[in-house]
Design a protein around this nucleic acid. Structure first.
Lengths: 207, 207
DNA sequence: GAAAAATTTAATCATTTGTTTAAATATTTT
DNA sequence: AAAATATTTAAACAAATGATTAAATTTTTC
């Protein structure tokens, strides 16, 4: 006779709070989340939140830092690697990033929403702008297509990869799309996006 | 002797509140916006907000409806027009949509953020899923590339067009990008995106 | 120009919400 | 097992916040 085994109940109180907070923050955002929502979702007494994390803001800051790492930490090593080709970088990025986003589909919208509200404090932490202009990836793009700003192609790659996860709620209206078929589509894109990027990068402007 | 002429001061109180609210809501989101923020930004007494709009929620609902119209109302006529070619639709969309977004860069992130928090009520209003599966545009994509889900190409088009505006805050970190050069880049994309979409749609899978 | 209606203001209310407190309970140390 | 420490709980606090009220002022109507 195995127990129903709620996997959450074994966790430490601190971990229960953090996981519940991560979920509620991601769904509602910082401002719309009440500490009581978190306490209820975690199944703990309200005061324990402050006992373990001091304040709602400090709890959020820790979680946001982890999320920034999940969302941007993966890009930097790929884009700055000087030993890989342009094509290989695109391939690795699409594969690894879509895998991350399938496991964490609410990540981009959550992070970008909060950046909108705290532009200074958060954009300073991540310093992602550098990657877009001076990384090995940017240099390779510039070498391949000297006439265009490399940012154009980076935006194509990121847009094709990330945008579907941001727009996911739109697709789920009506019976248009369920989670399973969405994930199948996204998995297909792991191979499709590198091919599309090749097409975009190879075809010079025909004017 | 001409007056300093604050253009806002001539507006009706109702209009002043609505414009201030639109700005503050777009920047901070519904939950993080206090009615006092709006009153201050509008330069009016707090009670006037409720006098003209009954509640913060009703004020927000009206504004959100307008924003949904701005963001999605433009897509439908283009995608459903049976008299235009696939290429023409893409061209028209990129041109018209980028124009809209340059004038209203915070629109996509604002709308998508709020949809995340109210998935049911808002996705029902817009019914955008239909456009992606049954519109003339979707049919033309299916005819051109029968082996792939048309959604793939729609996500490419939307991703390449909309994503830069969602990721704009990331670019503005450090001195990487200012508003003027961002807008120049986006204007370039009006022509580039149709070319890129052609490349993507013409090149069949080479396996 | 007086009466009526609409608008604006200052003050206040009731609730929500993040946080704290002090007591109770559980765990660890000696 | 007693003492010390850590954790948990219920209750309460203080500030913030959406909304209302009643009086004052302005505008419109007759």
């Amino acid at each position: 006779m195995t127990k129903p085994a709620d996997p959450e109940s074994n966790l430490s109180t601190e971990e229960k709070i953090k996981r519940a907070a991560t979920e509620v923050f991601a769904q509602k955002g910082f401002a719309a989340t009440r500490t009581r929502d978190i306490a209820e979702a975690a199944g703990i007494n309200l005061a324990l939140l402050n006992y373990y994390f001091r304040s709602k803001q400090k709890l959020f800051d820790g979680i946001m830092l982890e999320k920034l790492q999940e969302l941007f930490g993966r890009i930097a090593p790929i884009f700055t690697d000087t030993s890989t080709s342009l094509e290989k970088k695109i391939e690795t990025f699409a594969d690894s990033y879509i895998e991350t986003l399938i496991k964490n589909p609410e990540l981009p919208l959550f992070v970008l929403s909060e950046i909108r509200t705290h532009p200074e404090s958060l954009t300073q932490i991540i310093q992602i702008g550098e990657l877009f202009t001076t990384s090995s990836f940017a240099q390779q793009l510039k070498a391949r297509r000297p006439e265009a700003n490399p940012l154009h192609f980076i935006m194509c790659l990121l847009g094709m990869t990330v945008f579907p996860f941001i727009a996911k709620p739109l697709l789920k209206s009506k019976a248009a799309m369920d989670d399973a078929s969405f994930n199948i589509l996204m998995t297909e894109r792991k191979q499709l996006i590198p091919m599309w990027m090749d097409s975009i990068l190879q075809n010079p402007v025909q004017s």
